[in-house]
Design a binder for these strands. Structure first.
Length: 248
DNA sequence: AACTTCGTCAACCGCGAGACC
DNA sequence: AGGTCTCGCGGTTGACGAAGT
């Protein structure tokens, strides 16, 4: 075949799904000539498929020794073990599983075991859960803050009353002595004692550090990582129209 | 019932290695 | 020695049916 006819042939390569007729032509060819010399398939059979495409079709679909049907649990075990040993060497793994192709194993692995990005639906659910959880945390947090403030006010009032009573008593004793400064250190110590005892850590509220009960604490450490990744996940969706969906 | 999303799998693409000239 | 061809491999894409909304 000369260069021009070869070029014309190449320009006419068919792509896409194989027809039953093409399958039969290829099968007949392999039965007559054996596997190999894939580039001569087109010349000898009239198939308008590249040698590469013919080989792939034969290896992955037409070979008579292929197993059909789902991967069995035993095969799955072998795949897992071999992948742990060999990594993504699908052809090597396939050689240990008679009747299975590298393509089949590769697809199976990607579908069942590869740690995939959560689906859109799963991501939406995660986001919704996260938002609800965050709302609830904020609500509890603000409630506890209000409670703490009330307690602090009561303590301050009590302290003030005690202080006034003490002052009055002193004034009665020393009618002309000046009033004493309130004991700020004692007040602060009392507030601190009120605020500690949660184990939830310190939050800033109106410019002042306030301890937060454990149950209401905002996430940190490991949780923060989770939320951080969630936010990235949210950002990823929020930046686009959600239709791009880019697979991994 | 119509539309959307997901899972599966066949097929394609690009690249590297080895054979051959 | 180096250029070309062929084959094989791993990664990726796209079609399509099933499941979900």
């Amino acid at each position: 075949m000369d260069a021009i006819s070869s070029l014309m042939l190449q320009e006419g390569w068919r792509k896409g799904p194989w027809t039953a007729l093409e399958d039969r032509l290829l099968t007949d060819y392999v039965q007559q000539h054996g596997e190999g010399s894939w580039n001569s398939v087109a010349k000898l059979t009239g198939l308008r498929r590249s040698g590469k495409s013919c080989r792939l079709r034969w290896v992955n679909y037409l070979r008579p020794d292929l197993k059909r049907g789902k991967i069995t649990p035993d095969e799955e075990t072998v795949i897992l073990q071999l992948h742990a040993m060999l990594g993504n060497r699908w052809s090597a793994i396939a050689r240990c599983l008679p009747g299975r192709t590298d393509n089949e194993i590769k697809n199976y692995w990607r579908t069942h075991f590869k740690k995939a990005r959560p689906s859109r639906r799963a991501r939406a659910q995660l986001l919704h859960q996260y938002q609800l959880q965050q709302q609830e945390q904020r609500r509890q947090y603000m409630q506890s803050l209000q409670l703490l403030q009330q307690q602090n006010q009561q303590q301050l009032q009590l302290q003030e009353q005690q202080s006034q009573q003490l002052t009055m008593a002193k004034q009665q004793q020393q009618q002309l002595s000046p009033p004493e400064e309130p004991d700020h250190q004692a007040v602060m110590a009392m507030m601190n004692s009120l605020q500690s005892g949660g184990g939830g850590g310190t939050e800033w509220y109106c410019g002042s550090p306030v301890s937060v009960p454990e149950c209401c604490a905002l996430p940190d450490d490991d949780d923060a990582l989770l939320w951080d990744s969630l936010w990235r996940l949210v950002d990823g969706d929020g930046c686009g129209d959600g239709s791009s969906g880019g697979d991994y």
